[in-house]
């Protein structure tokens, strides 16, 4: 195995409970540098919970998260950011009263990263140049998503978790952002994508993991996944039952 193929993130037997509800019920997977991994599954299958645990928002109730060879389960978010994990949010919550530029400055100053991209590059790359000095509150929702992504990228993550980044973008924007995500992976960044748009997943991922009820039910390419009876059952079961 070349060093390139050593997983940067390993998750084993992850458990997260909310009251009696098992949001994650023994989830295991890994992702390697430069790989784009898709997490798919019906609503409530645990995709966002997995991202929240890996990014330190929730402490796991069981299992292991190993990042870059060291344990990362239950560590504080800002420490994980400094170690090289970052994420975007399904509903981005930028610092509304600060300008776009100031939003990025915070992450550049506190992200603890050396060799991070400059503000100008980020503004340029993610189409925020025109609004750079406007308060984040003035942005539309697609722009807020891009700002959220630049906030994450300013900390120069080695593992990037994207929670429904594509939702709400138009087809032209989707193509454009798919290209950007692939370019990021090409630099050696490991990327986990949670998404509902299957076309988008197919376009960018190398491999997908299908979740149901907090467990993995399939691993492989999306093309084979859609032929798997168990996967079809999970996605279409409700409709067949009718």
């Amino acid at each position: 195995m070349s060093p390139e193929r050593t997983p940067i993130l390993k998750v084993s037997n992850l458990v997260k409970r909310f009251g009696g509800f098992h949001a994650l019920d023994g989830l295991s997977f890994h992702v390697t540098p430069g790989e784009i991994l898709g997490l798919v599954g019906p609503n409530g299958s645990g995709k966002t919970t997995a991202i929240n645990v890996i990014s330190g928002l929730y402490a796991p109730d069981g299992g292991e998260v190993t990042f870059d060879g060291a344990s990362a389960g239950g560590a504080a978010s800002h420490r994980l950011v400094h170690r090289g994990i970052n994420r975007t949010f399904q509903v981005p919550k930028p610092f509304l009263s600060l300008t776009v530029r100031q939003n990025i400055q915070v992450a550049l100053a506190y992200g603890g990263a050396t060799g991070a991209p400059s503000i100008a590059e980020l503004l340029d790359d993610y189409r925020l140049k025109e609004v750079a000095d406007r308060p984040a509150a003035d942005l539309n929702s697609a722009q807020q998503k891009m700002l959220d992504l630049t906030r994450a990228l300013a900390t120069r993550p080695r593992l990037l978790l994207l929670d429904e980044l594509a939702a709400g973008l138009n087809p032209a924007e989707l193509d454009w952002i798919a290209g950007r995500i692939k370019a990021l992976a090409a630099t050696g960044m490991a990327i986990i994508v949670v998404e509902h748009l299957m076309g988008f997943i197919e376009q960018i991922t190398d491999r997908v993991i299908v979740l149901n009820a907090g467990k993995e039910i399939f691993e492989g390419t999306l093309a084979t996944a859609v032929r798997e009876p168990q996967v079809i059952e999970v996605f279409l079961g409700g409709e067949h039952a009718r």
Partner: peptide, 18 residues
């Protein structure tokens, strides 16, 4: 700036490394 970021949204601020 980071203080104001925390004021605006603590979770996002922590994901900015604060």
């Amino acid at each position: 700036l980071a203080l104001q970021a925390v004021r605006e949204d603590a979770v996002s601020a922590s994901m900015a490394g604060v």
